[in-house]
Design a protein around this nucleic acid. Sequence first.
DNA 1: ACCTGAACACCGTTCAAGT
DNA 2: ACCTGAACACCGTTCAAGT
Lengths: 237, 237
Amino acid sequence: MKTRWDMQRRDESLSRENIIEASIALLDYGGEEGLTFRALSERLATGPGAIYWHIANKSDLLTAACDAVVARTMNEIVDTMPEGTIRAIALGLFEMIEVHPWIGSALTSAHGSSPALRILERIGQQIRTLLVPKEQQRTVVGTLMAFILGVSRQNAANRQLAREQNLDRAEFLEEVSIAWSKLDAKEYPFARSVAGQIRNHDDRTDFLTGIDLILTGIEAMRFRSVPQVRHSASRLR
Amino acid sequence: MKTRWDMQRRDESLSRENIIEASIALLDYGGEEGLTFRALSERLATGPGAIYWHIANKSDLLTAACDAVVARTMNEIVDTMPEGTIRAIALGLFEMIEVHPWIGSALTSAHGSSPALRILERIGQQIRTLLVPKEQQRTVVGTLMAFILGVSRQNAANRQLAREQNLDRAEFLEEVSIAWSKLDAKEYPFARSVAGQIRNHDDRTDFLTGIDLILTGIEAMRFRSVPQVRHSASRLR
DNA sequence: ACCTGAACACCGTTCAAGT
DNA sequence: ACCTGAACACCGTTCAAGT
């Protein structure tokens, strides 16, 4: 059952890098549940226990795999104008999570961890050149990150859902559109009203519109010398 | 080991509702890994198999638990002015996920599912009264939802992380602040520059600032008759 | 120092058997 | 119709034993 490739691979001794690369392959192929210590040790032609010599536990492994892919994605992005670069980063992450859907959830669990930090840094550097006031930079970057990861994760989840139901994109959207148009008219007027639009929308375009929405908000905020005071925050707490 | 309460509970026969309520309690207490069919059947004084008579599988159970909490949260929000209501919905969801961190991940996996739909509908109705052009409503609501859930999830994950390290909020932020200020100056200039701000920030305020950023963007967009054409989308694809 | 693989304590889920 | 609980096929992780 062992292919030439497997044997060759094992010629190199086991290393943290080997393990991470094999993990990424398993995750890409079988999703989060595709990564098990048994599958991993089989692919690496070793025992499950051996892996624990190089990595602490499964969570450590997931973060490391995540970090490797994020670092690669970030290195592929070339800087141009700040807004353009932000869009490129956004789209790069969107497509990364589309190809590696498991990254979405792996990335949540670590604000201080190194993959999330890479993204924060990259966006932050652009926001600085956009001349956003210093006190607002952190919030603005946080807003962009939350939005980018939120949409990308949702997009990946939808694709996953479609695949589970053995539908292509068009069929899946058709199903959702039909389901929404059949909702109760009193309780779900909005969902019904947009049901028709679902069919022909483009995920990337929607995503970039959202990014532009936020960039527009940033620009508008830049020209307000004093940050606006909102009473709702304290009133609603 | 059985308390009076447990016994009393079992007097009512098993039902889907019973099971969902018990699941929520387990999830709140022990997080996602706190919900197991063994713990659940013990709490309900029955066997693991009995549960399968009322629910399809664990995923079904999670969605149902999620839906129950989301429905409750949404019912608590009273409508006022559209912007105010959107902030109230946002903050309501933020606090909901803070109290029930497991909802964050449960909510991702289901764009068409009923908990996500409730949220979409509620926000959508407000966006309609804001007179956003019909073709942009879907995208705008999607933007808000992605942002709200993205930030809330991140916030819940941070709290979880702090708890795992047995730190209170202040200690945790202090740790992050110190870690960021020690990063490499060439590679992480932005993270270093905001390290100091981490210490004294308020999560809710940041969150509402982000919401306002998006609402500002929406307002600006409303006054453009023709939706702006972005070349980056096709250029970057 | 690094690897092996059996063993442990868990999972979700099924299903023959009961009432 | 609804419940029981043993059994199945998995998990992540540990650890004595090897090289």
